[in-house]
């Protein structure tokens, strides 16, 4: 039985290694998606919070979790989606944001909940040349979590991880 052979912390550590399928430089733990592990007589329940309601990566992440557990000999596992509290980019640590930037994605720059109606002084830095002379091309980019920007200095287009 899972409960007898594993500690909650051990399973969390195991799952913390799983990468975000769309941004393979950060893990699901660093993104704040992995919320908790509950061990019971019935097995192991993984609590996961979706970043976006329709994020297509969630299905892949669920499969990754189940196969990681299976490799560790845990068969009776299930993944439960938890909506509250809603996922927010505020949960990303500075280290996580650094990783995003190195990967070529500008990190969210302000808190998700404040000033959404009139975000002032938002300087999105180009992840390539670090110039703050950038412009928004579209609020909707290659994936649900990103906006499309372009740098006026080095003229490169780049993704910006939207505040949420």
């Amino acid at each position: 039985m899972v409960k007898e052979s594993y500690l909650r912390e051990e399973i969390l550590a195991l799952l913390s290694e799983i990468k975000d399928p769309e941004i393979p430089v950060v893990t699901i733990e660093e993104m704040g998606m992995l919320r908790d592990v509950i061990l019971s007589d019935k097995g192991c329940e993984i609590l996961l919070t979706p970043t976006y309601t329709a994020c297509p990566a969630m299905g892949i992440i669920e499969q990754d979790i189940l196969s990681t557990l299976k490799e560790a000999g845990i068969d009776n596992a299930k993944v439960t989606m938890v909506f509250a509290p809603a996922w927010t980019t505020d949960w990303m640590s500075e280290t996580t944001k650094e990783k995003l930037i190195r990967f070529g994605i500008a990190a969210p720059v302000h808190s998700s909940c404040s000033n959404w109606l009139s975000p002032k002084n938002v300087e999105v830095k180009c992840p390539k040349c670090e110039s703050t002379d950038t412009k928004l091309i579209s609020q909707f980019g290659s994936t649900a979590c990103k906006a499309l920007y372009s740098c006026n200095h080095c003229h490169e287009p780049f993704d910006y991880f939207k505040c949420h």
Partner: peptide, 15 residues
Amino acid sequence: EEDLALTNIALDYIG
């Protein structure tokens, strides 16, 4: 860009 925007919004709705 608008093709992407409208279908992104559609994706939010289907979720």
